[in-house]
Computed example of a mutant assay.
Amino acid sequence: MNEKDILARISEYVGEEQALRDRYRRGGAEDEPGREEEHRRLEQLEVALDQCWDLLRRRRARLEAGLGADPQDPGGERVRPPDEVEGYLQ
């Protein structure tokens, strides 16, 4: 996945996240069918966005540090697992 792919995925996730947040703002009962699933999806999107931003920052840092990049795999970086990305402040 190159930088353009990562940015496209971020854009996709942000759009979906905004749509879900808009639904919550418009209201509706918390026990409404599908509401729990939407909440879980929102949590998944938040983690996925954190992973994408983390990957993008690490790749850009490698390039800025002059560590080079493979055109097929810029920076040689991989997506970190959720518990690692989400655990930075703990």
Results as ranks from 00 to 15, higher is better:
Asn2Lys: 06
Glu3Pro: 00
Asp5Ile: 02
Asp5Lys: 07
Ile6Gly: 05
Leu7His: 10
Leu7Tyr: 04
Ser11Cys: 03
Glu12Ile: 04
Tyr13Ala: 11
Tyr13Val: 15
Glu17Pro: 00
Gln18Cys: 02
Ala19Met: 09
Arg21Met: 12
Asp22Cys: 02
Tyr24Lys: 05
Tyr24Pro: 00
Gly27Glu: 07
Gly27Pro: 05
Gly28Asn: 10
Ala29Asp: 15
Glu30Lys: 06
Glu30Tyr: 07
Glu30Thr: 09
Asp31Gly: 10
Asp31Ala: 12
Glu32Lys: 13
Pro33Asp: 09
Gly34Met: 08
Gly34Trp: 05
Glu36Cys: 00
Glu36Thr: 11
His39Gly: 08
Arg40His: 07
Arg41Tyr: 03
Leu42Ser: 06
Glu43Trp: 01
Leu45Gln: 08
Ala48Trp: 14
Leu49Gly: 03
Leu49Pro: 01
Cys52Tyr: 06
Trp53Thr: 08
Trp53Ser: 02
Asp54Ala: 10
Leu56Tyr: 12
Leu56Gln: 09
Arg57Pro: 00
Arg57Leu: 12
Arg59Ala: 08
Arg59His: 04
Arg59Ile: 15
Arg59Lys: 09
Arg62Phe: 04
Arg62His: 11
Leu63Glu: 15
Leu63Trp: 06
Glu64Ala: 13
Leu67Met: 15
Ala69Phe: 12
Ala69Met: 12
Ala69Ser: 13
Asp70Val: 03
Asp70Arg: 03
Pro71Asn: 04
Gln72Cys: 01
Asp73Val: 01
Asp73Gly: 01
Pro74Cys: 02
Gly75Leu: 03
Glu77Tyr: 09
Glu77Arg: 12
Arg78Trp: 10
Val79Ala: 01
Pro81Gly: 06
Pro81Glu: 11
Pro81Asn: 06
Pro82Arg: 12
Pro82Asp: 02
Pro82Lys: 04
Asp83Ile: 10
Asp83Ser: 14
Asp83Arg: 12
Glu86Val: 14
Gly87Asp: 06
Leu89Pro: 00
